[in-house]
């Protein structure tokens, strides 16, 4: 069964929008997420296929609502919890922040 990321040929998405002079990242945190993923793959915490899989199995509504790098960060935290690097509660911001 295909997953929500498998959109080839699917109808119903909005028009394609080009952003003139688009920067590589739209904010610092996006660059940090990008670099964090590379660092974790290089260390062997998980591999590229696992990273893609973690994005593709996000719940459909979450996948569609998230921006590109929000999906990346969701996949990273999912894998950190599943690999036992940290439990899910530790990965969340402490209360009061």
């Amino acid at each position: 069964m295909s997953r929500i990321n498998d959109v080839g040929g699917m109808a119903g998405f909005p028009a394609i929008i080009e952003e003139p002079d688009e920067p590589p990242f739209h904010s610092d945190w996006e660059a940090h997420v990008f670099a964090l993923n590379g660092a974790l793959i290089k260390r062997g915490v998980y591999n590229l296929d696992e990273f893609r899989d973690a994005q593709e199995r996000l719940p459909v509504e979450r996948y569609l609502a998230a921006s590109y790098y929000e999906r990346w960060f969701a996949a990273i935290t999912t894998l950190l919890a599943e690999k036992g690097v940290a439990d899910a509660a530790e990965l969340e911001l402490p209360h009061g922040h």
Binding site: S27, L36, E70, F73
Partner: peptide, 24 residues
């Protein structure tokens, strides 16, 4: 990590995870 999160919230979340990973 819904699209509703403000940029400052996700910035803080990313910094938090980075700090955790540095500590480990």
């Amino acid at each position: 990590m819904s699209g509703d999160h403000s940029s400052s919230v996700i910035s803080a979340e990313v910094r938090h995870v980075e700090a955790l990973l540095e500590a480990r």
